[in-house]
Amino acid sequence: MRPWLCRGPGASWDPVREQVRSSGASVIYAAISDWLPDDLGDDRLAAVLGRDHARLGRITKPQALRRFVASRLLLKSAAGAVLGTAPEELELAYKPGGRPYLRGIDQLDVSLSHTEELLVVGLTRHSRIGVDIELADRRMLGLGTERQVCTPYELEALQQVVEELRNGELVRLWTLKEAYSKAIGQGLRFRFTEFGFSPRDRQVQLLRPDGSPVAGGEWSFTSWLVAGRYMVSAAVHDPGFGGRPHTGDAPFVPRLSTAR
């Protein structure tokens, strides 16, 4: 499963539906400019944004505003496509810690990230997903970042990496931690130095500060280099209630019947 580039509202969502159906999760990326409507005052935009529309008036930074609108449109369109419903029929809400979710719909979990002009959306029919994107060569080394971010084990492992690849490795670790932290709805509160990840050449696992693995195979972590310049990571949680055996025509969102 690789992140899939969505070129705009007119693009087909079949690949995303297929990814969610077969592997349980999908990661989508898109350019802000491809998802920015011409008219921010449009009624349909208000309908799609729902409660988020009120927030438009409070964001003063133009770049942040563009990104806010485009990201919500992308997320709701992608979720709607997978759920078989129009985006305005979904209500995007936020947990107290800021984590986005589809209100009343726990059959599909979502996550959102962005950097510069790129947006990333994660979708899963398992219990939880978190995604993060960062410029693969964003400067992190030498600013003291590694001390705030890495476990002792990771700091040591980082020293083993060839110098010119070291910053990139730190970016990878960063995005994995952000993805996990967002998946569990903790954001900033998550103490990055208490959870670590294994070096690149092994299957990515969650590690204790000393490098020993945290037991339990319910979490999977993946990183990709996207569009040649960006590091994207995803953390997916599948608690193994057997997953949802979603195949064929069974609707994601159950239909109401007269049964109790």
């Binding site: 809400a93 589809l102 209100r103 969102v253 159950p254 239909r255």
Partner: peptide, 13 residues
């Protein structure tokens, strides 16, 4: 149209 999924958001609220 059908009440789902919108009604589920209302159920949550």
């Amino acid at each position: 149209g059908r009440p789902e999924p919108r009604v589920y958001a209302l159920a949550d609220r």
